[in-house]
């Protein structure tokens, strides 16, 4: 993956596939360590599946016998000297989190987080998505419920204009709190 945002998109797609109704994404920078986490209340995984989920030869997909999404994310974090963790409980949900050293030469740039959120919301318009960005104490929070409150019942959140608005809005706010700190 060329952007961390693409890893986040890929991981959160698993949450959509797990039929989560709430997906919380957070990026928290403390010092040089960026913690990225994707938390959902989807169907979760059995202990047996969880134990082998970082193995590329484990997958839920039906078109291939290989699943590289989670291994990619884990590798991206570990390449920077960071860590990876996945916790899950059948019927309760899953939390995938990874810590990256943003000063490592192997840190993959964050990329277009607005584009990632737009794609996710469009794919699962009925799911509640929250995004929290905390760059050394500068915080930006986004919640699809706030957008839906403004739109009301008759204007869907996944209309093209609304998605483009969300995408650009998140991008601007991310850039404002980040101030170029996370590459």
């Amino acid at each position: 993956m060329r952007e961390l945002s693409l890893n986040i998109l890929d991981i959160a797609e698993n949450s959509i596939a797990a039929r989560a109704s709430v997906i919380d994404i957070s990026l928290i920078l403390r010092g040089v360590f960026l913690e990225v986490s994707v938390k959902d209340n989807g169907c979760g995984m059995s202990g047996e599946f969880l134990a082998r989920v970082t193995d590329p030869f484990t997958t839920t997909r039906t078109t291939r016998k290989v699943g590289v999404g989670i291994p990619f994310f884990k590798m991206a974090a570990e390449m920077t000297g960071g860590t990876f963790e996945i916790r899950s409980k059948k019927g309760e949900g899953t939390v995938v989190s990874a810590v990256f050293d943003i000063e490592s030469v192997d840190f993959i740039p964050i990329g277009d987080i607005g584009g990632t959120m737009g794609a996710l919301i469009m794919h699962a318009p009925n799911t509640v998505f929250t995004l929290k960005i905390d760059v050394r104490g500068n915080v930006y929070e986004f919640d699809t419920m706030e957008i839906k409150d403004v739109l009301g019942d008759d204007v869907p959140i996944d209309g093209i204009e609304v998605i483009n608005f969300i995408k650009n809005n998140i991008k601007e706010n991310f850039d404002a709190v980040n101030g170029g700190i996370i590459p």
């Binding site: 998109l9 277009d112 794609a119 093209i160 995408k167």
Partner: peptide, 19 residues
């Protein structure tokens, strides 16, 4: 928009359609 699509550049393609 599976891992293969995302890694190959599907998200910018989706966004280009929207724009």
């Amino acid at each position: 928009m599976a891992t293969c699509g995302i890694a190959a550049g599907a998200r910018p393609v989706l966004n280009a359609f929207l724009e």
